[in-house]
Amino acid sequence: MELILAVVSGTLFAASFYLLLRRNLLRFVIGIIILGNAVNLLIFTMGRLTREVPPVIPYGQKVIEGAYANPLPQALILTAIVISFGLLAFTLVLVYRNYTVSRTIDADRLTASEPEQDVDLHTQKKRLPA
């Protein structure tokens, strides 16, 4: 099980890096989403997987007897999910707002804040699609 989750997490990392390297800002945002999930899965796997024994103390007892699933990674992931949810909402609105002003989601055309000089090193036809 650990192996499967490790492979899934690795695949998610790879997919997100591919998206993060695109010039299209929407793809970039999707890459961030996938990256967050990849890390959450990684933390979950690193906390060791224990099946079918939730860390809940039975009624009337003081402690759990025997092995139980590690609750801490789940708490960490929950926190990380909440944080990335907030950040993602902000990022999406930011990209959208920026689009309404600059009319582009191509990262290379975001040059309003840059000094006015020719910085484009490649001609357009040599470039990969965004």
């Binding site: 970039f28 961030i32 902000f90 930011l94 600059s102 975001l110 040059t111």
Partner: peptide, 14 residues
């Protein structure tokens, strides 16, 4: 909400 601010923010946030 100035244009250059939004743009700087896209880079900074990303």
């Amino acid at each position: 909400n100035e244009e250059k601010q939004l743009e700087g923010a896209v880079k900074y946030v990303g």
